[in-house]
Design a protein around this nucleic acid. Structure first.
Length: 387
RNA sequence: GCGUCGGUGGUAGAGUGGUCAAUUACAACAGACUGUAAAUCUGUCGCCCAUUGGGCUACGCAGGUUCGAAUCCUGCCCGGCGCACCA
């Protein structure tokens, strides 16, 4: 067992780290699960710390059985943890589409052969009141209200809906049905995971370990990507993913290495001792390798260096076609490169649009005549060819 | 049901008859700076046309008052909080 298995990227272990340690050392078989609500189209680096932890555990061998639970039912209810008010109802099609991506993306990290996949609609969809009410009677309203986030809402006089009380129960019930020995999730899931622990104890007299991982937060303590747009998704192209990591603040580096890579402490220490830019490139390379592969990571890195550091010809151009006589602005709008003509005009006025590579300025209502390459801002490279 | 407060741009949240396409903050986008960044500074940030400027559509929905409404009135829809029993 790796010495940092129970410490790296770990925020808390319930009931106690030592207990889990001895369970692991005793060779006791453990069913460990991680629940994800398929609310978005893709996993992102925020999931990476949990997945890597699961992989570490999976590597222990036969002793461990990893169960990935897709909250296809709970996704429809909406976890109040991400309380941004009105949730959009997801259609079953969207959900199953998401699930397809998720499974494949998880395969980047975990050994799918050794992983069990379940959907919680299996049991939650047919959970009747006669089952639900006894669950609800295990908890008091004040226990639920204790959650920080409910307290905050009371303070702000914003609504708390009944179904939001139900959510932790349902997630907890997953633990009961799956008869797991352990649950892993982000720190923000601690409350829900502990409800499951209580339920399991009450209904099946079973002890469930709960391992909460640290969250990838920025210096303000906000979850990455929540306040800024640089959350790296598994579905991002290698180049995008690489670029997004490079735009993370330097201050995030130590935490990001801990959570999103498996470089050893010592390696990380060496890397961090060097130039921050080099360190971040290393981080970006590692992350892209995890969510794609090392070859693509290499290419992404090369393209990044080319484009931004050497200002050389970018390796990827967005290819468009246009008719001679058409306004360039119209071609760009119809291909959603820019939002509107006004948007394009503003960019032109800001000096953000130039012809590549001779840097000729472009005027707002320039007419398209022959093949032209444009650089718009820092990141948009467009080549327009005659149709 | 009663009382009361409220529904504003991607978000939060000002604005209570004209100077409001709507203060501000965050996010976004761009420029400068740099180590790619971040931070900082500057600009943009409804849509369309335009050289200054003009037009259109927007402040829950539908009507109305007014020369003029995000702002006033009426109705409707949605929501918060309080009250309801013990009295």
């Amino acid at each position: 067992m790796n010495s940092d298995l129970l410490t790296r990227a770990v925020s808390n272990i319930y009931p106690a780290s030592e207990k889990l340690k001895s369970a692991l050392e005793s060779g006791q078989k453990l069913r460990i699960y991680f629940g994800i609500d398929p609310t978005g189209p893709t996993l992102h680096v925020g999931h990476l710390s949990v997945l890597l932890k699961l992989r570490d555990l999976q590597n222990l061998g036969e002793q461990i059985k990893i169960v990935i639970l897709f909250g296809d039912f709970t996704a429809q209810i909406g976890d109040p943890t991400d309380k941004s008010a009105v949730r959009k109802m997801l259609t079953p099609e969207t959900i199953s589409e998401n699930l397809k991506n998720y499974r494949e993306q998880i395969g980047k990290i975990l050994d799918l052969e050794k992983t069990e996949f379940r959907n919680n609609s299996e049991w939650l969809a047919k959970l009747g009141l006669e089952k639900l009410l006894p669950l609800a009677s295990e908890f008091t309203v004040s226990q639920m209200l204790e959650r920080d986030m409910f307290q905050e809402r009371i303070k702000k006089e914003s609504p708390i809906y009944l179904h939001e009380f139900l959510y932790p129960l349902l997630q907890g019930y997953d633990s009961v049905v799956l008869e797991v020995d352990m649950e892993i999730g982000g720190n923000d899931q601690t409350f829900n995971m502990l409800v499951g622990r209580d339920l399991l104890k009450k209904l099946k007299s079973k002890e469930k370990f709960v391992l909460a991982t640290k969250l990838l937060t920025d210096s303000g303590g906000e979850k990455m990507g929540k306040t800024t747009g640089n959350m790296v998704a598994f579905a991002d192209t290698p180049t995008d993913a690489y670029g997004k990591v490079m735009s993370w603040p330097d201050s995030l580096l130590p935490l990001a290495f801990e959570l999103c890579t498996r470089l050893s402490d010592e390696e990380v220490k060496n890397i961090l001792a060097g130039h921050p830019k080099e360190a971040k490139m290393k981080l970006a390379h590692e992350i892209v390798t995890l969510i794609h592969d090392s070859k693509l990571a290499g290419q992404a890195e090369e393209s990044f260096v080319q484009t931004f550091q050497k200002e050389a010809e970018p390796t990827e151009w967005q290819e468009l076609t246009g008719k001679a006589g058409e306004k360039i602005s119209e071609i760009l709008v119809s291909n959603s490169v820019v939002k509107s003509k006004t948007d394009f005009r503003n960019l032109v006025e800001a000096g953000a649009v130039e012809e590549w590579p001779n840097k000729n300025p472009i005027v707002a209502d320039q007419i398209f005549t022959a093949e032209i390459k444009l650089r718009i801002g820092k990141k948009r490279f467009v080549r327009i060819r005659p149709a």
